[in-house]
Design a protein around this nucleic acid. Sequence first.
DNA 1: CGCAGATCGACAGCATGCTGTCAATGGTAT
DNA 2: ATACCATTGACAGCATGCTGTCGATCTGCG
Lengths: 156, 156
Amino acid sequence: MGEDPGEVAAGAARTAAGAAFSALVEAVFRLNGRLVAAGDALAAPAGLTSARWQVLAAVEDAPASVADVARTLGNARQSVQRVADVLAEEGLCAWAPNPAHQRAKLLVLTEAGRDALARVGARQATWANGIGERVGEASLREAAATLRRAIEALGQ
Amino acid sequence: MGEDPGEVAAGAARTAAGAAFSALVEAVFRLNGRLVAAGDALAAPAGLTSARWQVLAAVEDAPASVADVARTLGNARQSVQRVADVLAEEGLCAWAPNPAHQRAKLLVLTEAGRDALARVGARQATWANGIGERVGEASLREAAATLRRAIEALGQ
DNA sequence: CGCAGATCGACAGCATGCTGTCAATGGTAT
DNA sequence: ATACCATTGACAGCATGCTGTCGATCTGCG
């Protein structure tokens, strides 16, 4: 969708700012793809994937229900549910009774889950440090700020 | 994966540049999600989705085989194949014989496909102009350049 | 000319994300 | 208390992307 759609109907001419945004969109798509692949590569040695890593990380500090995790990650409840079920099967997390809600059990990390998270975290830090070094902290901060403004602009 | 993994094993301390990159990763994930949703919304009135739009756009200027389109988009051949089959069924594109390869037929736009593409293109231009205006051309260009440098750094 | 490797479409299977729906549960206003 | 509404987990189904594999088809080297 960020791809240049080529010829454009008259009356919908692209401004310079619009073209700049479209170029950013393309870069975001490409970078996103690379990052997902990199995340999977980082997580694989610990027996995780990007999706499972995110769910585990969401309950690292405190247990939470599936619906809580979904809200935190910005995903659909059902998507998180499936991943959580797999994680529980594999013993990386477990279901704990929720004093505030009988059906909505709490997802808690097991020791194995905490270990896996620590391993992935260490790998991710090393990886992020390397890329950060090569791109430069100042540019990264500016770019992130611009992206956040774009997110905000999209919300309107 | 861009999520802060919380505690990090000793010996893998996060540098300032690493933290800045991780923050950018999170912003990219969030923005990517918003953009995909926005793309679908832009394409829907023309009876398209983001994926179909991209495939159609790839053959707008010249017919191409499924494998060609896949390389252009950076996707797997099989993913493009499925979308192309649907597009052909719906009459937005058609299969033309390929003088250079008997099996690898060429995907060509039909009139209906060209119309749909024009409608989406007009909508996308208006949309991109609006967001571009709000975020600012200079920031957008800088951010895109930084993202491209990150992509390059990831390639190593 | 003929054979080996690369390329291509097709099919099967998997992971991740989404929406829609339902019954169970919890909270709230009357 | 009770009745209504929001939340939650569960299940079904769909879209998109990926890998693996197969036979068919080009390409190029000997």
